[in-house]
């Protein structure tokens, strides 16, 4: 589904991603962990097409297509979804109106009929249950005045409505209380299918108890320095990142 090869990207003059390789197949959940500033959000941003980043080398293919060639909205319509680490507020724009426009532009792109108000309402009612979201959030402006946790939950609600093929969740767990964490993780699990995939960026092993990853990758200084199964997250939680850092040095030296 997603194939990242030797991806390099910079912001202004700083090279942030320094050769990322990652393959995600349908049905898989990948967790990406790594210290602050290591480039996790940058990777997510590059995949979503944020233009602050310049790709200097490497390729990314998504379902056989060159992802880097596509405009951000095209990527979204093709099925790439990013749950933002810092969701953006759009004053005055009703959350459900926003979602309806988004969903319909995705459907148009896929040659599907647009949903009318009635069908859309039925759909979002169903999806709201999935993330246990209160109805009142539908008619409030997108993220405006939402608490930190509410914003994160709203991201997953968007995801539930838009049903992406590849979802990238950038620290969706940060800021969630214990109950919300379980609800959000539950939602993600329910949305899991054989033909979609999820990349979860997180700092905490805790989330991975709920969303059980097939692979865990450790990103340090713009490179994936270690990959493993879910037990890797536990080791990281116990030993911190120095352990992998040392590991890379050894690899680099030896």
């Amino acid at each position: 589904m997603l194939e990242i090869r030797n991806l390099h990207a910079k912001v202004e003059d700083n090279e942030i991603l320094r050769g990322i390789d990652l393959v995600v197949r349908p049905g898989e959940i990948h967790a990406i962990m790594g210290p602050n500033g290591s480039g996790k959000s940058t990777l997510a941003g590059v995949l979503a097409g944020r233009d602050a980043y310049a790709v200097t080398d490497g390729t990314v293919s998504f379902e056989g297509k060159d992802l880097l060639e596509m405009a951000p909205e095209e990527r979204a319509r093709e099925g790439v979804f990013l749950a933002f680490q810092y969701p953006v507020e759009i004053p005055g724009v009703n959350n459900s109106y926003f979602l309806k426009s988004a969903l319909n532009s995705i459907r148009r792109h896929r040659g599907m009929e647009e949903l009318d108000a009635v069908d859309f309402l039925a759909l979002i009612k169903d999806r709201m249950k999935l993330v246990d979201m209160d109805q009142s959030f539908l008619n409030r402006p997108v993220n405006e005045g939402f608490s930190g946790g509410e914003k994160k939950r709203n991201e997953i609600f968007h995801m539930a409505v838009l049903e992406p093929k590849l979802a990238i969740l950038d620290e969706t767990d940060s800021g969630l209380d214990i109950d919300a964490l379980r609800i959000v993780a539950d939602g993600v699990n329910k949305l899991r299918r054989k033909d979609n995939a999820t990349i979860v960026v997180t700092h905490y092993q805790r989330l991975l108890n709920y969303i059980v990853p097939d692979f865990v990758h450790v990103l340090v200084d713009g490179r994936i320095v270690k990959s493993g199964g879910k037990e890797l997250a536990i080791t990281l939680e116990e030993q911190g990142y120095d352990w992998v850092r040392e590991g890379t040095d050894r690899v680099a030296v030896g």
């Binding site: 909205e73 979804f81 426009s101 988004a102």
Partner: peptide
């Protein structure tokens, strides 16, 4: 904001729709 437009685009909206939406929200 660039951020607002990018957020809209990431949800599948065109730049034009994004601007319309933001402007209409403003009004």
């Amino acid at each position: 904001g660039e951020d607002q437009i990018f957020y809209c685009k990431q949800r599948g909206l065109s730049a034009e729709d994004a601007v319309n939406m933001i402007v209409n929200g403003f009004c």
